[in-house]
């Protein structure tokens, strides 16, 4: 019934109104009901929200400045190991900077990268995918061949070369990663649009006189959002991983930025002397990515009606 009401609304171009608000609330409630059943997803969401809070309130939480070098405190081990101190709970790096504070500030960069990359690739991917799936024909063929070309390269290699050419740095790394992730959104949107385009409600809207833009964005797109949300979540974690990998290779954020991948690159030469300079930044990446992937799995289960009751 829910979808029928929505289809009818969409067909006659009706938005808002109390009835629609109620169905929307009911759908959200249904979604939350299924999402909540997945304990892993809820745990992932909690961890992710915690990381977001840490990133927002970094200046209040971090015990030290991320760039302050404490003289005489080089490679101090974590507090629970002999020689550790409560001043530096997770120890210090080779130039006497507090690792915990750098990790806390690093959360800002990782979340920022994820957010910017997903926004860029979703917006461009959805628009291109809508055009390809809606108009088909030559436009579609050209777009899909272009996407095939991007997908023919290993994503990290293409991003690496792009950044090398644009110049190393976090900003260029984000653009490069957004470009290599965007074909996935194009393909997904195109497939969803092609599946929806033949449905009755689209035809009804067309008969009612809706133009192409309205049909694409207002009638069809809202019914294709579920797979896009899931892909967006998974791309968020991919973006964080790729940005860290580029940072690790020296092509992402540049030192002394406390970006996690860059911190790992700086720590490489000390791996056999000071395990903590290597262990904690990587752990931060792993936990963040894991939390987001847990949420992504939960979203997929909650949004995919095929799996719901199996």
């Amino acid at each position: 019934m829910v979808t029928n009401a929505k289809e009818a609304d969409a067909a006659i171009g009706l938005e808002g109104g109390p009835a629609v608000d109620a169905t929307r609330r009911a759908m959200l409630y249904e979604f939350w009901y299924y999402f909540r059943q997945n304990r892993g997803a809820v745990l992932g969401l909690c961890i992710f929200l915690l990381i977001v809070l840490v990133a927002i309130f970094a200046p209040l939480i971090a015990p030290h400045s991320p760039s302050a070098q404490v003289r005489g405190s080089f490679l101090v081990p974590p507090v629970w190991q002999a020689g550790g101190s409560w001043d530096f709970i997770l120890g210090t790096d080779a130039v006497g900077r507090d690792i915990l504070s750098r990790l806390i500030y690093g959360a800002r960069f990782s979340l920022f990268v994820g957010l910017v990359v997903v926004t860029l690739s979703v917006i461009s991917g959805v628009i291109i995918g809508l055009i390809a799936g809606y108009f088909r024909g030559t436009v579609d063929t050209i777009i899909m061949r272009l996407m095939d070309i991007i997908l023919a390269f290993p994503s990290l290699l293409l991003a690496l070369v792009l950044v090398a050419v644009l110049g190393p740095g976090l900003f260029n790394a984000m653009i490069a990663i957004a470009l290599v992730l965007q074909p996935h959104f194009v393909r997904l949107t195109r497939a969803a649009v092609m599946a929806e385009k033949g449905r009755d409600y689209v035809m009804a809207a067309k008969v009612a006189g809706a133009g192409n833009i309205r049909l694409m964005f207002k009638t069809i797109l809202p019914n294709c959002t579920a797979p896009l949300i899931v892909q967006g979540t998974l791309s968020f974690s991919t973006a964080i991983l790729e940005a860290a990998a580029l940072g690790f290779l020296g092509m992402g954020a540049q030192p002394p930025t406390p970006e996690w991948g860059t911190m790992l690159a700086e720590a490489r030469e000390f791996i056999l002397r000071a395990w903590w300079v290597v262990t904690f930044p990587g752990l931060a990446i792993l936990i963040t990515v894991l939390a987001i992937n847990l949420v992504g799995d939960g979203l997929r289960d909650a949004l995919d009606p095929k799996l719901k009751r199996s």
């Binding site: 791996i271 056999l272 262990t279 752990l283 894991l290």
Partner: peptide, 18 residues
């Protein structure tokens, strides 16, 4: 599998080396 899928492999390599 989820941990493996989320693993930053460059860090994983360094841990194994340690």
């Amino acid at each position: 599998a989820l941990v493996g899928y989320s693993m930053p492999i460059f860090w994983w390599a360094l841990l194994l080396i340690i």
